[in-house]
Every structure is written in C-alpha cells, then in structure tokens.
Design a protein around this nucleic acid. Sequence first.
DNA 1: TTAAACATTCAAGTTCACTTGAAGGCAAAC
DNA 2: GTTTGCCTTCAAGTGAACTTGAATGTTTAA
Lengths: 141, 141
Amino acid sequence: MNIKEVSERLAIPKETLRYWENTGLIPTVPRNSSGYRDYTENEIKWALFIKAMRKAGMSVESLIEFVALFHTRKNDRVAQKALLQEQYDALLQQRNELDKTISYLGYKLDNFETHTIPFLAEEDYYEMRKEKMLKQEPAEK
Amino acid sequence: MNIKEVSERLAIPKETLRYWENTGLIPTVPRNSSGYRDYTENEIKWALFIKAMRKAGMSVESLIEFVALFHTRKNDRVAQKALLQEQYDALLQQRNELDKTISYLGYKLDNFETHTIPFLAEEDYYEMRKEKMLKQEPAEK
DNA sequence: TTAAACATTCAAGTTCACTTGAAGGCAAAC
DNA sequence: GTTTGCCTTCAAGTGAACTTGAATGTTTAA
C-alpha cells in the first residue's frame, strides 16, 4: 500500500508518517522498485498504535524508547508484554489526574451559585477532595 | 505574597507565573511600592485553576479566551457558569478519548499471549470496540 | 556600605512535534 | 513525448509554551 492510501485510511498526514518513520516510531517501510514506500500490515499497525498513544498524550520521545525496546525484545514475549503493561499503567495514571481535575471543576460547577467571586479558592479544592475522597476506581480493563 | 512564595506553594516556576500574567491567563498582579508583584488570593486561585486546566491538556490559547470572556461577564453569573460548563464538557470529551485508548491497550494486553507478532492489528481495534461497545458512561460529577 | 539575594522588563533563545520547501525522479494520461 | 501528479530525501521553517539572558533596581545581612 502506498503512502497516500495509508495516509487517508489512517487519517495521518503523509509528512507525519515519514517523520514517524525517520524518528523510529514506525519500523522502516519497505520500498518498491522505484524507491516508493510500500506499507505492509506491520507498519500500518504500528502507525495506528502510535496515533492512539500520541492522542493520549504520550511524548514522541518516550514512544521512541518504547518501540526500540520492544523491537530488541523480539524473542521475549514476556518482556514485551511487560513493556506494554507499562504504557497501559501510564495511561491509567493520566486518567487519574484527569479525573481529579474533572471532579474539581464539577464541584465548582455544582456550587457556582452559592459562591462569591472569585470562584476558585484553594480551600475549595481541598473541600472537594474531602467530599469525594479520590474514589480511586481501579480502572477496568 | 511575593512571587517566590507563590511559585513554591503552587509548584509553578516564577518565570511561568510571569508569562501567564503577560499573556492574560492570570489577572494583572498588584505591585508594591518598589514594583514587585504582591499576589492576592484572587491571582493565586486563577493560577491554580490554570495549572489544573493546562495539566488536563487545555491549550493556552483557549484558556486565554476563556479567562477574557469570563472577566467581561463579571456581572453575569449565568454566562460565567455556562463558560465553566463548556470547559467541563471539554474535559469529559477528553476523558472519553482517553478511555477508548485505555480499552484498546487493555484488550491487546489481555490477548497478548494468543496473538502472533505483530501484536497490533487494525481488526483488533474494531473487534475490541464490538466487544465493549464504547460503554459511554456519562462521567459522574 | 557593599555584597548577596532577591525583584523588574523585554528580547531572544529553546524544545517539541511537526510542516514546508527545494531539487529531483517516476508513472499514468493526453 | 511532455505535462500532471505522485513519490523521494534533506534541510529549513513554524507554532506553541515556555525559558534564559541582559540590563537594572531593591532589600537584607555582614
């Protein structure tokens, strides 16, 4: 599959696909007789994965590290799974942070009428946390 | 309170506090007789709020807009609340996206042993979505 | 009273993650 | 057979969000 098709199917700019390949986020894509990229399922899968992780806020740098390590562990499925688990845990951590902010804003919203300007007090933040005490749901898989 | 204390209490670099003030993320901080910043509760609250929203992924640009609009609505609590609600909804939307990726990776992790390399297939993504069909929880406040 | 440790502004520099431009080769269409 | 549109590499440019540097002023401690 050439770069245009891949770009359209995955909704990733061609330029970004090339950039990701150059920086090691995606394995080197095989070229056809005229030197054009000819994507296989493998590279497409990686592109999809990278897209998802980037959208979730993972930095390019840490993804490069992950991909490199993952490839050096080609014959160690256990190690690979551990690496994947690490990424997963990082996402859960991020959701925890996000949930805290959501609760914070939700609290301010619920009590908006009864509050005086200015609407955001440091005390409110602690007050909110006392009330809902970080209902740390273990984040279903 | 001077900039050093605020910086330490909120864990925000002094330079960033000045930058946020210059770009309109934080109201202009009053100065003492020698021109030094003397923070009041108001600016500290805003800094806390901005910190939380930045951490949640809100862009500086959209926060500048929000802050400006919020201030022009000083006497319209209803409009202010609506603005706040907008920010809240954006956070919920972000959590939805994050949850999708978490489910995606969680699925890959659960089925890791039974999968052949490479581990991420486009089909898997759809398969996963069929299975758990976007359990669109309305995100409790 | 002078050095250290703060503060100020404003401009310039840095980092990240792309994005664009230049120069050129290949391929299908007229 | 040449124009049109796609592809290639590599270097340079961009935008966002800070971060650092330079020049200068003020407060505190020795």
